[in-house]
Design a protein around this nucleic acid. Structure first.
Lengths: 239, 239
DNA sequence: GAGTGGTCTAGACCACCAT
DNA sequence: TGGTGGTCTAGACCACTCT
């Protein structure tokens, strides 16, 4: 599991040291030159690791002073970015359960949440209900394109499809476009999520792409509005 | 307005060339070595510019092939990141109008959406109603901390507070933590947004920080649920 | 003035893709 | 095999902060 990349290794080491309070919130990391001596690397490599800490909200760099450790615990709810339900569950220990409602091979139908460009393509359709503390909270509906992933075993749908894609199939998941809206719930959804007729739901639709820019997954996640929370760490883009 | 930074200049040049279709969606940018000759810079500097394009969703780099230009138009609704309402309005040309409802100096009260750490601090409170196509869509409530921004003129609240902060006061806005939830609307909100009693609203609460990590703005944005849409471009974090 | 991060360079070696 | 991006180095100069 050791990484080939020096800077990723340094990044991981710093993350664990920050999360274990070896480097404390409100204090400064060793300077870049000190770190480069510590890790036996050039300063630019250290800077790559720090860049990673920066974009993930672990530190804030202040010119002339140093790299300030931020209070990560406040925004540890990592629903932003691309994170699988399994990873969320593990990092938050939220006592969740997954029920696979459907797992079928089919062609992607018109009128579904999938974009026009993949309608008619072969895919595995997975519908899952997520329960948190025994209460239904989310319905996940996925189309996994068959030209990239020919088949998804039931055990994988029950556990973690991302772990299967990345570690078994060696796919490199790279980026996603997500859209969040609030919509009325249809009767099927009302029944599954156990909500009254008038209630709305939060719908997160996403398209996920591989490193080579091939689309391979289209997802619709329907959340009970009262149990939905989305936290984002954002940086201002320089103009 | 010319930037001192070489790589930012290159980034901006490439952005305009992509948005003006000089580099077309689906085609590849010139290689990094070619770009470094074109711009008269080292390859690492080019790579910094490309890194910026990458995180903002303009390109996808594919090893052994090149930098593929993505279809930016699909996710041009930039509610992700830190973007002011004025900037959104300009980039989307959404025929919006702003009504300043309140602009008062006060101490931040307990029980407000502001975090404990700033309760009792002096701040400017601004409440604004945003109308899109003459329909009320969002209520923005801001506390601007007075130790950083002593006063906010009415004309600024009416126009763009970010432009004032960055270009008049020289503040460097750096990062923010945002949280999105769905909540029932209280009677005041119902009236302002012109929605029925049972309706929910989408609430985006954020804390915004300067480059030196000082908190300077706390915001609560209350959206009509039926007019709310949030699009995010996300990249998978390497483990 | 000493220390910090921000930028930039010229060169090197590697893994991957096309042919 | 030649071109591409991915990583890493050793050194340089600058702007900023602190004392």
């Amino acid at each position: 599991m050791t990484n080939q990349n020096k800077y990723l290794g340094i990044y991981q080491d710093l993350v664990t040291k920050i999360t274990h309070n070896i480097y404390e919130t409100g204090s400064y990391l060793p300077s870049e030159t000190q770190l480069s001596e510590l890790y036996g690397s050039s300063r630019e490599t250290i800077r790559k690791a720090l860049q990673n800490l920066l974009t993930n909200g672990y530190i804030q760099k202040i010119r002339g002073k140093g790299s300030l450790v931020l209070d990560v615990k406040r925004f540890v709810f990592p629903v932003s970015g691309i994170t699988s339900y399994k990873e969320l569950d593990e990092s938050l220990q939220m006592e969740s359960e997954t029920r696979v409602l459907q797992l079928v091979d089919m062609t992607i139908p018109t009128g579904s949440f999938a974009p026009e460009s993949v309608v008619g393509d072969q895919a595995t359709f997975i519908e899952r209900l997520r329960l948190v503390k025994n209460e239904p909270s989310v319905i996940d509906r996925d189309y996994i394109l068959s030209n990239i992933v020919p088949t998804v075993p039931m055990a994988v749908a029950q556990d973690s499809i991302y772990d299967y894609f990345e570690n078994k199939l060696g796919l490199e998941i790279s980026y996603a476009v997500k859209k969040i809206t609030v919509e009325p719930a249809d009767p099927t959804v009302q029944k599954l999520l156990d909500i009254p007729e008038t209630e709305s739901v939060v719908v997160v639709r996403s398209e996920t792409y591989l490193q080579d820019s091939r689309l391979f997954q289209i997802t619709e996640a329907i959340h009970r509005a009262d149990r939905f929370s989305f936290v984002e760490f954002a940086r201002r883009i320089k103009k």
